[in-house]
Structure formats: C-alpha cells, structure tokens
Design a protein around this nucleic acid. Structure first.
Length: 596
RNA sequence: GGCCCUGUAGUUCAAUGGAUAGAACGGAAGUUUCCUAAACUUUAAAUCCAGGUUCGAUUCCUGGUGGGGCUACCA
C-alpha cells in the first residue's frame, strides 16, 4: 500500500535533508480532513527537533523531496505543520482497475497455523434467548468473519449452560406442576416452554420466602430455608450422582430447549462449529481443582470446600468446589478452558461475554495461571456492554425482557409494512417478498446493534430504535440494490467496461475520487476491525462508503454520461462499491439484497 | 466501602494525541419529465467540572461529580 512507501520515503527525506534518523512509527500519517485539499497528510511537528526549522519550511522541504521521489504524488500543500499530499488521478484510477475484480480484495489469506477459538452465545437451557443474547450472537458471528478475513482459522464454539441449580429449578417446577404437558401438546416453542417453568418456580419460591419472612426470619435465612430451594438442591445432588429418573427428565427438557434455540439461531443467521456442554466439562474442572489442591495451589477449608486464595493478588478468595462436592460456575469454566485447549491447540481463546463478568474472567485467568496453565495468558475476554431499555436494565422478574423471537417477529412486520407502503413488494412473488422482508428486518436489527462499539453500553428503544432511513442497515442495503440495478442496465446497454479499462488518463471529479478513496480504505478497515475485535469499525465504514456513493450517484450520471471513458470509469466505481458493500455486510453477517 | 467500565448536539452513535469535533434521527427549508426519493441538498444545535503533561487534549494523567456493573456455596 502507498502508506508504507510514504513513511519510508519520509524517513529518507529527513535523513537526507537534515541528517537525522526518525522512527517511522513516530510519523503521523493520516487521511486528509474533508475540508482540506489532499489525500494523505503528514504531521511534521515530531520532526522539528531534527530539522531545526519552522513547521512550514520543514513541511515544504519534505513535500518537495517526496514529490521528486514518488511519481504517485501529483502535488502538495502546506498548512502550518501539516503536509497535505495529493496523489495523481492516474494512481487512483489504476488502483480501481487493478482491484475491482479481485475476489479477495481486503482479505488476507491463511497465515496463521493455530486457530483462534471463539466462544459466543452461551445460553442457559432454562430460558429463551433475549436482546442481550442477540448482541452477543451478532458480535460473535461477525467477529468470526472478521478474524477469518484477517487470515485466522476460527473455531466458533458455543458453551451451553445445561447444568446447575437453575436447571434444577425448572425441572422441579415441571415435576410438580407440569402434568405431563410438552411443547408439542401446548404448541409452545421448546425454550419458551422451559422458561415458563423457570418462572413458575420463582413465583412459588418467592411466595415461600415471603411466608417465612412473615414468621420473623431474615430475608437471607428465608431464602435459604424455603422448602422449594431445598428440593432443588436435592435434585442437583441427585443429578451429579447420575440418578436415572433425574437424568432422563434432564435430557428430555434440555432437548426441548435446544430445539427452540436452533430455530432462533437459524433465523438469526448464526451458527457454530462445535458445541460444548457444561455437563461435559465440570468433571474435568473438578479434576483440575483436586490436582491444584494436591500440589498446594489451592486450599481446603475446615468444612471441606475448596478455594483459590487470591488475596496476595489483591483479590478475594474464590470458591471452586462446595463442601458437598458439587461444582460451581468457575469449576466448569476451568474444565471448559482445558478441554478447549486440548481439542484445538489454539493460539488464543476469545470469550464473547458481557462486561458484568469482567471479574469472573479476571479470576478465571488467575486461577488457571496458578494451576500452571500457560494458555491462561492467551485467554481474551471480549467484554461487551449491556443493552439497556429506556426504563433501564432488562429484568426478567419485572417482565421487561425483550425476547429474541418476539423482536425478530416485530422487525419482520415493520419491514413488511414499510416495504409494502413504498410499493416495493408489488412485483415480487410471495416467497421473494417474505425473503426480502426478512433480509431488511434483520439487516436493520443487526446493523443497529453492531454499529455501536462493543465495549459500550447501548440503549435499545423497541418503539423507536429501528429506523430504515439514515445510518441504518436498510440504507446500506438500498444503496447496494440500486447499484445492482444500475449494473444490470449497464450490461443490457452493452457496456463491457472490463475490456476497455485502459483509460487511466482521465481527470477525476471530486465525487469520483472521494468514492475511490473510500474503497481504498477497505483493507485497512478489515485489519483494524480484526485488531480491535470491533465489528463497529466495519459498520461505520460501510455506512460512510454508501453515503459517499449516494452523493456520487445523485450528482453524476453513469449510463447517461456522454463521454464513453467516463461511463466506463463510473461503472467501475459502482461495481467496486457494490462489491465492497456486500463484502463489508458479510463481515457483519448481514445480507445485501439484489433489489429492494 | 473496594474494584472495573462510562459521561460528546434534544435523542442515538462517530472521531490511531492533530487542523474549523463528524453522522443519523428529530426540528426548519428545498430537490422527482433523467440510472430505484428506503435517496440527495441547505440550515440551527454538543466534548460533565477543575487542574496537569504537550507545539497541540474529546482522547493521556490526577482530583471531583453523574450513570452502569462487579464485589454469591447463582450461572
């Protein structure tokens, strides 16, 4: 890329003009601001100590040098300490023609031996997926695409929380009040069916706690002594003892939940290469904990429970095995990490998990390190922010959870209504129309979620958040569809721009050049998104590209232009823009429709 | 109490330590005999406060302050 050459030549310039050596990393090379003439800008302030001249004359000296030594540079201007370089139109047009049809422009081929294991989704089998899971799934799926584009092998894994006290709660509720009904007999989606019993447990449990508190117990004691909780814990012990009746019910209920999840995943367009179940990893976790106890890394308390003492690292003690021998969340995660490492020998393991678990992952890494696991330093917690509703955080107890299936239904309905209103569904078959509504509705939702920096909390207002105009998925999809339509017309009109792409001597108009410059950025964007693990970088880029293209499209005729060379050029720009929009959207897991 | 994250137009989001802080929605005013008006054009509107480092701070540091999270023998 031209940036590397610019940096290198700038170093030469400083050396030859002033006799000093400068570190290329300390040179500020950036894209020139919109209001100022130029393509790239070099900030010369850091060089003043070597040049011992004013910012202006230093910039002018270096500009002269670069222009003499780089044919790509047509001219330059200097504003204070900013050296603005203008590349020749020839350079940009040449870039366009050389890359427009490369099938992998912007992507880097395989260049890493060991894979990255990327975990996302991680549902509980006792409740359906909600808005928070949607952010998690979309981030995880998109990150996998972005990492692949950067030449990584990626193993996408899901870790299902299929054991633990919470599962026992729904099982208990079903045993008590289920009357043998099933998702089939009730017509409910399996995960929602299970969720119903989890809620039921909590309803009765809360009542018991209240009654006990009425007899004078403290809230804490009441919660511990409530009979339902004791029964649930009994089930957990039976489960760990592989009681046959409990195991059968557990498998049956989990099966219902998985079936429900699969439907939601499929609709959302996300999938996995491997699914881990905590029921398969907690025993390994226990083993590792016992091993750690034996070699003195962990401690046993008088009641028999086992802990990691992290107080010398500024943290507290952390429970790893209960006195009754049952395991906790941390135990499972230790086992899961080990299993994953053994399975794939990854260069790193990325966990897409909400920021409320920052402390958990901090502890996990430290405990693994104490257990002598070197890979602990290659565990990366991609901590994303919460999705908040206008009334605050989602709380299942207060019924303010936005269900994933409901939300997608709603998106689909809105997409349909808007599309029909605009009369854009008229010429489509029913199947095509439904496919289009899905593409647009999901595109809007996905883009809305992914355009926000993952680490930030974001606000989602179900009533207002999803718009189809402006900085939205449908805006970008529309731009793509319009380009496809244009290209089809170009084809019909007999334009074969590929065969006549030699007209690289044309002067470029500002909007033509602006669009090509955006396309040029794509490689850097893919790289940056991979480095920072941020789909938002791609999302904001592709919006910017679409916006600039729309200006180009609005202002300049393509097929109606009179000079044939210009028609060819503009078709090339449109074609490349369409390709990069599609490629960017694919990195986000969003479809770009051929027409809309 | 301790620890972590965060504070940018009315609202939702941008800005590797760089130039006059960008968009979108919403508000005001326009563009359709012409490649899809889910588009385009014009316009008003913001860096929580106080210090510090720097040629230059929304960005880095310190203190304060608002918001969120964690600090479970839940996951």
């Amino acid at each position: 890329m031209i940036e590397a050459t610019l940096l290198q030549q700038t170093c030469f310039a400083v050396e030859q003009l002033y006799g000093g050596v400068i570190n290329p990393d300390s040179i500020g090379l950036e894209r020139t601001n919109k209001e100022i003439t130029g393509d790239f800008t070099i900030v010369v302030f850091p060089m003043l100590k070597i040049s011992r001249k004013s910012p202006e004359s230093t910039a002018t000296d270096i500009g002269d040098y670069l222009q003499r030594n780089m044919p790509e540079i047509a001219e330059f201007n200097v504003i204070k300490g900013f050296l603005n370089l203008i590349l020749s139109d020839h350079y940009w047009i040449n870039f366009l023609y050389e890359n427009v049809d490369l099938p992998d422009f912007g992507f880097h081929g395989d260049r890493h031996e060991r894979p990255v294991v990327l975990e996302y989704s991680s549902p509980n089998t006792n409740k359906p997926l909600h808005l928070g899971h949607i952010r998690n799934n979309l981030l995880g799926f998109s990150l996998a695409e972005i990492l692949k584009a950067n030449g990584h092998k990626v193993v996408r894994v899901n870790l299902v929380n299929d054991r633990g006290i919470h599962i026992c709660k729904s099982m208990l509720a079903y045993m008590k009040w289920g009357n043998g009904e099933t998702p089939g007999s009730t017509g409910m989606k399996g995960d929602h069916f299970i969720g119903k019993y989890y809620v039921l447990f909590n309803t009765y449990y809360k009542k018991e706690v209240n009654d006990l508190m009425g007899t004078g117990l403290s809230a804490e004691e009441a919660e511990r002594q409530a009979p339902l909780m004791a029964e649930a814990q009994d089930i957990l012990r039976k489960w760990e003892a592989k009681d046959s009746e409990i195991t059968v019910l557990w498998k049956r209920m989990n099966g219902w939940a998985y079936h429900g999840f699969d439907l939601t995943y499929k609709r959302m367009g996300v999938d996995f290469d491997h699914i881990y179940y905590e029921s398969e990893t907690y025993l390994l976790g226990k083993e590792l904990v016992m091993e750690g106890l034996n070699n003195g890394a962990l401690i046993r308390k008088t009641d028999g429970s086992i802990w990691a003492d992290l107080s010398d690292e500024g943290l507290d003690e952390k429970l790893l095995l209960r006195a009754d021998g049952t395991s906790v969340y941390m135990t499972q995660d230790i086992g899961t990490a080990q299993l994953r490492y053994d399975d794939y020998n990854p260069s790193s393991m990325i966990y897409v998990v909400g920021n409320e678990q920052n402390y958990h992952f901090d502890v996990l890494k430290r405990v693994l390190a104490r257990l002598g696991k070197d890979y602990s330093s290659h565990i990366h917690h991609l901590s994303y922010g919460m999705v908040e509703l206008p009334q605050g955080k989602m709380k299942s107890r207060e019924g303010t959870v936005v269900d994933a299936d409901d939300l997608m239904d709603e998106m689909l309905r809105t997409a349909e209504a808007t599309t029909r209103e605009l009369g854009k569904a008229n010429e489509l078959s029913e199947d095509e129309a439904i496919k289009l509504f899905n593409t647009i509705g999901l595109g809007a939702l996905k883009y809305f979620i992914l355009k926000v920096d993952p680490k930030k909390n974001m606000l989602f207002d179900p009533l207002e958040s999803i718009d189809f105009n402006g900085n939205t998925g449908p805006f970008i999809q529309y731009t793509y569809a319009r380009i496809q339509s244009l290209l089809a017309r170009a084809d019909e009109a007999g334009w074969r721009w590929e065969e006549s792409g030699a007209s690289v001597q044309l002067p470029l108009l500002p909007l033509e050049k602006e669009t090509i410059k955006r396309l040029y950025q794509f490689r850097e964007i893919v790289f940056q998104a991979g480095k920072e693990l941020s789909p938002a970088i791609v999302a904001n880029y592709v919006f910017d590209l679409a916006k600039v293209f729309n200006q180009f499209y609005q202002e300049l005729p393509v097929l109606k232009e009179e000079v044939p060379e210009k028609v060819i050029l503009r078709i090339g720009i449109s074609r490349f823009t369409g390709t990069i929009i599609q490629r960017s959207m694919k990195l986000l897991g969003i479809e770009a429709p051929e027409r809309m």
